Amino acid sequence: MKMEQENQNLQEEAVETETSETAQAQDNAAAPDERTREELIAEVARLTAEAEDYKTRYLRAQADFDNFRRRSRQEKDEFAAYANVKLIEELLPVLDTFEMAMKSTAETDVKTLLTGIEMVYRQLTGALEKEGLTAIEAVGQPFDPNLHEGIMQVASDEHPANTVVQELRKGYKVKDKVVRPSMVQVSQ
Rank of each mutant, 00 (worst) to 15 (best):
E167R: 11
K130R: 14
L124K: 06
K173S: 06
H148F: 06
L133D: 06
D144N: 03
V178D: 12
G150R: 13
T125Q: 12
K175F: 08
P142C: 07
V165N: 05
Q166D: 09
A127H: 08
K170Q: 12
A138M: 06
T163N: 04
E167K: 03
E137K: 14
H148K: 02
V154M: 08
L128F: 10
N146M: 09
E131P: 00
K175Y: 11
E167I: 03
A161N: 11
M119S: 13
Y121E: 15
A161Q: 06
A161L: 04
Y172I: 01
V154W: 09
V179I: 15
E129C: 06
K177I: 12
Q166K: 13
G150V: 09
I117K: 04
D144A: 00
K175Q: 12
L128S: 08
V139D: 04
V139W: 05
G171K: 03
E158G: 02
K130G: 12
V120W: 06
K177Q: 14
V120S: 06
G132K: 08
E137V: 09
G171C: 01
A135E: 14
A161H: 08
P145A: 09
M152Q: 13
H148Y: 12
H148N: 06
D176Y: 02
Q141T: 04
P160G: 09
K170H: 01
P142W: 11
H159F: 15
D144M: 03
G132D: 13
D144S: 00
F143N: 03
S156K: 00
Q123T: 02
E158M: 07
G126I: 08
Q166M: 11
R122N: 14
I136R: 09
G150L: 07
V164P: 15
L124D: 04
E118R: 05
Y121L: 07
V120E: 12
D176R: 06
E118A: 12
L147C: 07
A127T: 06
I117H: 06
E158P: 01
L133G: 05
Q166P: 01
Y172A: 02
I151P: 04
T163V: 01
L124T: 14
R122I: 07
R169C: 04
G132Q: 10
K170Y: 00
Q153R: 13
R122T: 14
E158Q: 13
V165D: 01
V174I: 15
E131W: 05
K173P: 02
K170L: 02
G150H: 05
V120M: 14
R169P: 00
P160S: 04
Y121C: 04
E131I: 05
L168V: 09
M119Q: 13
H159N: 09
N146T: 11
G126F: 11
G150A: 15
N146H: 11
E158I: 08
